[in-house]
Design a protein around this nucleic acid. Structure first.
Lengths: 199, 199
DNA sequence: GGCAGCATGTTAACACTGTTCTCATCCAGA
DNA sequence: TCTGGATGAGAACAGTGTTAACATGCTGCC
């Protein structure tokens, strides 16, 4: 909010950061529809053309926002394993993953909605891969026999579950009262894939 | 393509259907960016205002497109279980599910991307639920002990896997050569959740 | 058969958007 | 101190979604 608002100088001082921060707020509140270049410039208190000194495109701006989202995301998921017994870490992280999606639904959607060309923007790609890694290593540790498949499976599961909850596709389960279900499902999944193959 | 193109009359004849069909093509080819009211009208050979006689909004048009997508989706997934042994049906459907997502990535994204207000449009909601059902009953059959959880788990898994493949988030796995992996993962998942609890 | 009414089309306009010019202002280093 | 480059403003352009007012064609009623 009030990181730095000098506001009446000709040069803003740190426009690029201000743009990304405000864009993030705009996105979180109003979704991708509410995130427009002009509206953004208005909020920051700057002319409509100014952002183009810092971002080639609207798309470039969006990529930066998504990258910021991935950083926050990574912190959250990674932090969830602190002080947790090794065998429960995967479950804890999975839970944190889904809860992040539920807390910032529109941001989460943007991060994975992409026609934001995740392939061309290196920063974005790195941020996304980093987030993937933190869950992948936990999954691999839990199922050393087939670490690759375990990672994919875990990631797919939490990602899919998050999307379903966001869409309220799960009959009778609203995002509000979903916590117990999340707990049960993520733990159950982690357990099944965690234990060595059951013969 | 050539269902009916009279083209030079003042009244089109069946504009609504033509709009949805063309919008679907437009979406499949160019993604949600390429799907604009004016461009759509142009393609159909009609004035820019004409679509508004049949759809209140751009959003309403998009909802109709998504509903059509869900219908096609459902046919595909449902059809995959024909002539397959009962115990393999869930796996076959899961495979068909992911392959649909890979064949029509932009359509699939739209169907689940929604800020298309899946809650307000009854037709769309029904179409989506119908698609959900067909996989859910197969999952429930495979794991009668906890049919609810099994359904959610299966759905989440295939949905998440689809999204990951679309994003090329899976390192080294491009959509092109993904088929063996899909086979292995879906079968493995179906099996694990299919067999009654181990231990 | 002729005619009213309604559904469906058109044209013109509005407000808004992303984007790009050109010009103004500030700041940093020679 | 002065100059050049980075960063801002302002005006303009093409394109968009949407609406209002008008035109056309089809259908059912006398």
């Amino acid at each position: 909010m009030s990181t730095s608002e000098p506001s009446d100088r000709y040069h803003h001082g740190d426009l690029r950061r201000a743009l990304v921060e405000t864009a993030l707020e705009l996105l979180i509140e109003g979704g991708t529809e509410a995130l427009g270049m002009r509206e953004l410039a208005r909020r920051v208190g700057v002319s409509a053309a100014a952002p183009y000194r810092h971002f080639r495109d609207k798309q470039a701006l969006i990529q930066a926002v998504a990258a910021a989202g991935f950083a926050l995301f990574r912190e959250t998921v990674d932090g969830a394993k602190e002080g947790v017994a090794a065998e429960d870490q995967l479950g804890a992280m999975a839970e944190a993953y889904v809860q992040f999606a539920l807390r910032y639904p529109r941001l989460y959607r943007l991060m994975f909605s992409s026609e934001l060309g995740r392939f061309e923007d290196k920063d974005l790609r790195r941020a996304a891969d980093a987030a993937y890694e933190s869950l992948a290593v936990a999954a691999a540790k839990a199922d050393p026999d087939s670490p690759g498949e375990a990672a994919i499976s875990a990631w797919a599961f939490v990602h899919g579950l998050s999307m379903l909850l966001l869409d309220e596709q799960l009959l009778g389960v609203s995002a509000a009262n979903a916590e117990p279900l999340i707990r049960a499902l993520t733990r159950r999944h982690a357990q099944r894939f965690g234990k060595p193959h059951p013969a």
